[in-house]
Nucleic acid binder design. Structure first.
Length: 280
DNA sequence: AAACAAACCTGTGCGC
DNA sequence: TGCGCACAGGTTTGTT
C-alpha cells in the first residue's frame, strides 16, 4: 500500500493528535505485529510516556517520546494507522491500540490495523541497534537535501536498470512500485533503461520529475486504489490516483502521447506499467 | 555487483 | 454459488 506520499500523509494527519498526548494503555492482539521486541517491551516502553514529535524517513514512521525513546511503525503492504474514539468499534485486523490522553481534550486511540501482518511496531532506544535498516536508507526526497548533485551522486552511473534503482531504498528512500512507474513515465524513460547510459540532461529531468511527482502526490493526499485500502489516520482517501498515467492502466491509450497503449510487464515479482511510445 | 526467486500473510477479483 | 488461481502498495534473505 503505502509509499512515501501515503506515509507522509498519514504522518501529517495524526501529528496534531499524537504530539503532546500521553499513552495510558496499550492493547496488543497480534504478537506478529510486535515481533521484533515482543509485547512487553512495547507496552512498558509506551505506557506513561508522552509523544513529543513525529518524523518520517522513506516509508518508516517515527513517534518520538519525551524520555528519548521512539516508536517506529512500518506499514509494509497493508498497514494502516487510524485515529478513533475509544468507544468506536475496532475494525478487523486491529493489532495494536494505543490509548492517548491529553489535558483539555477527549481521550482517543491510535490503532494499527494490518490484514497481511507484514507491518510492525517497534519501541526502541536510539542507543540500541533495534532498527538497523533505517541507517541503510538512502536520500529522502522530502526530508534530506535533495539537490541535483546529491541525486547525481546517489543514482548516476549505476549499471542497473532505472526501475531497480528507483526502488532501491538504499539509494532513494520512499519510492515504491506506483510512484516508480509514474516518475519514469513523466521522465519518458523506460523501466529497463540502464542508468549509466543517461546523459546529464536526462538525469536532471529525472531528478526534477521525482520531486514533482512525489510532492504532487503528497499534496493530493496520496493514492487510494480501487480497493480503498489506503486512507489517512482520519479515514480520508487520497486523490492522486486520478493523476496516474500508467499504473493500473494496462491496455489504455497513453494520455500523454495519445498513441501508445499502456503495457504491463512482470519482472522480479513486480509489475511495471509503461508506455512503449513515449518512454525510451 | 546485480538479477532473480522465495519467503513472510490475508484478502479480493477473476475465469470457469 | 463455489473453487482455484493470480495478484496486491514492501522488505529481507538466499541463490545464481
Amino acid at each position: 500500500m503505502p509509499e512515501l506520499p501515503e506515509v507522509e500523509t498519514v504522518r501529517r494527519s495524526l501529528d496534531a493528535a499524537v504530539v503532546g498526548s500521553r499513552v495510558t494503555r496499550v492493547d496488543i492482539d497480534r504478537l506478529r505485529s510486535v515481533r521484533r521486541t515482543g509485547p512487553d517491551v512495547v507496552r512498558a516502553g509506551l505506557v506513561g510516556e508522552t509523544f513529543i514529535g513525529t518524523r518520517r524517513r522513506g516509508k518508516y514512521l517515527f513517534f518520538d517520546l519525551a524520555n528519548g525513546n521512539s516508536m517506529m511503525v512500518h506499514l509494509r503492504m497493508s498497514g494502516r494507522l487510524l485515529l478513533a474514539a475509544p468507544d468506536s468499534p475496532r475494525e478487523a485486523h486491529t493489532h495494536v491500540v494505543l490509548r492517548l490522553e491529553r489535558t483539555g481534550a477527549a481521550s482517543s486511540e491510535l490503532r494499527f490495523v494490518d490484514p497481511r501482518t507484514f507491518g510492525e511496531v517497534v519501541v526502541f532506544n536510539p542507543d540500541d541497534d533495534l532498527v538497523p535498516e533505517v541507517d541503510r536508507l538512502g536520500l529522502d526526497p522530502l526530508v534530506d537535501e535533495f539537490s541535483f548533485d546529491q541525486f547525481h551522486a546517489a543514482v548516476g552511473g549505476r549499471r542497473r536498470g532505472l526501475k531497480a534503482v528507483l526502488l532501491d531504498q538504499s539509494v532513494i528512500a520512499g519510492i515504491g512500485n506506483i510512484y516508480a512507474d509514474e516518475i519514469m513515465h513523466r521522465a519518458r524513460l523506460r523501466w529497463d533503461r540502464r542508468v549509466d547510459t543517461l546523459a546529464t540532461a536526462r538525469l536532471k529531468l529525472l531528478h526534477r520529475t521525482t520531486v514533482e511527482v512525489l510532492c504532487e502526490a503528497v499534496a493530493a493526499g496520496g493514492s487510494t486504489l480501487s480497493d480503498t485500502q489506503y486512507v489517512d489516520a482520519l479515514g480520508r482517501e487520497g486523490i492522486f490516483q486520478t493523476e496516474h498515467r500508467v499504473y493500473a492502466r494496462e491496455g489504455e491509450r497513453c494520455i500523454t502521447c495519445g498513441r501508445g497503449i499502456i503495457r504491463r510487464v512482470t519482472g522480479a515479482g513486480r509489475s511495471t506499467h509503461f508506455c512503449p511510445v513515449c518512454q525510451r
